[in-house]
């Protein structure tokens, strides 16, 4: 088809080819520190990863970051979408405000939270100090136990709007007869919520969970600006690990191998994603 040709050409050149090429170079040992020798090493880049503690640590941190953020996003978005599904004055304004975090560039979001968490002059310290929750300023991002949660918080703040809008669609699709019928049957508010609202939101929920998981496991910008993987290796997640391995250690072969594994994980998720969308085409 002539009409399809441009899209196929673009996607073929810029999406399919890199993925194939990535697989190809993941079988070689390519180090820019030694540009003239790129020996074929077969599956060595992959088998090396199996015993690589730094890699598994990064995988584990990515998993915990994603679990924490996606749970928080889904929960907050549920509350917000229930609220915005009500009729009240100011609802329009509120739903417009909701778009603000969505529109902000991730880099500006990161800059903003870095400033909020700042150890000397940040708003978080200032607020907690004024409210007497802390008696001296804290180095928030320097605390290994808290870093991942603080980054997750910045991520959640930015992602809640989209999740809310997706959930609102499934809320709006619930026919009001269902509620009327439940009321006639004597269901309480809570029973109506559990037996009518929640089941109807299930597809919306699945969509949000899968999409946000995909976003969380690949996320990079916040880690780059807020912590650079630190302190220690507290926020050394997989995407950061790939970046360091590739562009700081200049080891393109193993970087490619890792990004290939990440792509496969995402493909698996996207399969679920497309299935959930239940495309009729």
């Amino acid at each position: 088809m002539l009409f399809l040709a441009p899209v196929m050409a673009v996607l073929g050149a810029v999406a399919v080819f890199p993925i194939a090429y990535s697989l190809y170079i993941s079988f070689f040992s390519i180090k820019l520190t030694r540009p003239n020798r790129t020996p074929f090493v077969g599956l060595k880049n992959y088998t090396d990863l199996l015993g690589d503690e730094a890699f598994w640590g990064a995988v584990w941190r990515t998993v915990s970051f994603s679990l924490v953020s996606v749970t928080a996003i889904a929960f907050i978005a549920l509350l917000v979408s229930l609220l915005l599904n009500q009729e009240f004055r100011g609802r329009r304004i509120l739903s417009t405000i909701l778009l603000v975090p969505w529109a902000i560039p991730y880099v500006a979001n990161a800059l903003m939270w870095k400033w909020i968490y700042d150890s000397s002059y940040g708003a978080l310290n200032g607020l907690l100090y004024q409210l007497d929750f802390i008696d001296k300023y804290m180095v928030w991002l320097g605390d290994q136990d808290k870093t991942l949660f603080l980054i997750a918080n910045a991520f959640v703040w930015k992602e809640v709007p989209l999740a809310t809008i997706l959930l609102l669609v499934s809320l709006k699709s619930i026919p009001s007869d269902l509620y009327a019928a439940a009321r006639v049957d004597g269901a309480t508010v809570w029973q109506r919520f559990v037996h009518v609202t929640l089941p109807a939101m299930k597809p919306g929920f699945m969509l949000v969970m899968i999409y946000e998981t995909m976003m969380a496991i690949r996320h990079f910008d916040l880690f780059f600006i807020l912590t650079e993987g630190g302190p220690g290796s507290a926020s050394h997640v997989l995407s950061w690990h790939i970046y360091v391995e590739t562009f700081r250690n200049l080891s393109f072969g193993s970087g490619a191998a890792m990004s290939y594994l990440l792509a496969i994980a995402t493909f698996a998720l996207s399969y679920l994603f497309i299935r959930t969308l239940g495309r009729k085409i």
């Binding site: 080819f17 890199p18 993925i19 990535s22 970087g255 290939y260 995402t266 998720l269 497309i274």
Partner: peptide, 22 residues
Amino acid sequence: VYFILITRVIPDIALVVPFFLV
């Protein structure tokens, strides 16, 4: 359709290495 949808979900970080080389 599936082809186009699937390319949408490739993580950027996976594209970066080969793309940089090219």
